[in-house]
Structures are given as structure tokens and as C-alpha cells.
Computed example of a mutant assay.
Amino acid sequence: MSAELTSSQAATGRPLTTQQQARMRARLVDDLQQARELEARLQHDVADGIASRRGSTNDEVDDPEGANTAFEGAQSNAMVQHTRRHIEEILAAMVRLDDGTYGSCERCGSAVSKARLDARPATAFCINCAA
């Protein structure tokens, strides 16, 4: 139970206790570290792919492996962008923890359920507004 919100807190939108805030912050910090490590690995993979094609005289249009190489590069770039967005979401969640709005939906203001916070600690929206 990482978020450790009681049912009444999730239902009423009451603020987190100091202990709950500390636990959630630790989880977000861990998630942030993992996401930054993933971003670095993905960027390394993209750079390796570019370096492996540098100086090549093969035209990807005529190269039977060209389409796969281009697809893999595009896929890796998309994964880097997705990871960066996740990092931004985690940082925003940490700001919400600091300003006391963590656990409240940014769109409608209702409480975000305990189960949702446990599953997606960086979420800014209740399940209804996320859909």
C-alpha cells in the first residue's frame, strides 16, 4: 500500500498525513529515478542507432533492412518522448504534494481514489476525468 490513503480520506478529499506524504514522496522519487534511468538508456540506444548508420552508403529505401531500422528509430524516439512526459507527470505530482493538492483531481476537484493513486501515483485526474 504505497499511497496508504484511508478510505475516508480518499472519499472526502482530506489531505494526506505527514507520514502518508513522506511515503508517497519516496515512491515518486523512486519512480522518477527509474524513469530518468530509462530515458538515459533509450537516448543511448537512439544515439547508437544513429552512429551505426553514420557514414553508411546504403539508401534505406533500397536496403532491405532500411524499413526496420527506420521503424526502430521512430519507435525509440517515441519511447523517449513518452518517458519524458512521465517524468514531467512525476515532477508535477511532487509539486502537488508540496502545495497540498495531491489526491485531488485537477479537472473536477474531486478526490482521486486510493486504488488509482496506488496504481498511478503521478496521476492528476480521477478515473472519470482521465477517460
Rank of each mutant, 00 (worst) to 15 (best):
V61A: 14
F71C: 00
V80H: 00
L16K: 07
Q33A: 09
F71K: 10
Q75L: 15
P64A: 04
R27K: 15
E89F: 00
A26W: 09
F125G: 01
E88K: 04
G66W: 00
Q33E: 09
Q20T: 03
R96S: 07
A115P: 01
M24E: 02
R27C: 13
C108S: 03
V80F: 00
F125S: 12
S110M: 12
I50E: 07
I87N: 01
R23L: 08
A78R: 10
F71A: 11
R85H: 14
A40N: 09
H86N: 10
R27Q: 15
A122Q: 11
Y102L: 06
A70F: 11
E60Q: 12
S56L: 00
S2K: 04
N77K: 04
S110G: 09
S7A: 13
I87F: 10
A131R: 14
A130T: 05
A67R: 12
H44Q: 14
R53N: 10
M1G: 14
A93H: 09
L91N: 15
Q19H: 08
Q81R: 10
A35Q: 02
E37D: 14
S7E: 14
G55T: 04
T69M: 10
A40Q: 11
Q81P: 00
L32D: 05
A22P: 00
E39L: 07
A111C: 05
A70S: 06
S113H: 09
A70Q: 10
T123Y: 06
T6F: 10
S52D: 11
C108M: 02
D118H: 14
A40S: 13
K114V: 02
Q21W: 01
A78E: 04
A70R: 08
A67P: 01
P121Y: 14
T12L: 12
G100S: 08
A40D: 13
V29Y: 04
R36V: 09
G55R: 03
N58H: 13
V61T: 12
I50A: 11
S8A: 03
L5G: 00
N128R: 11
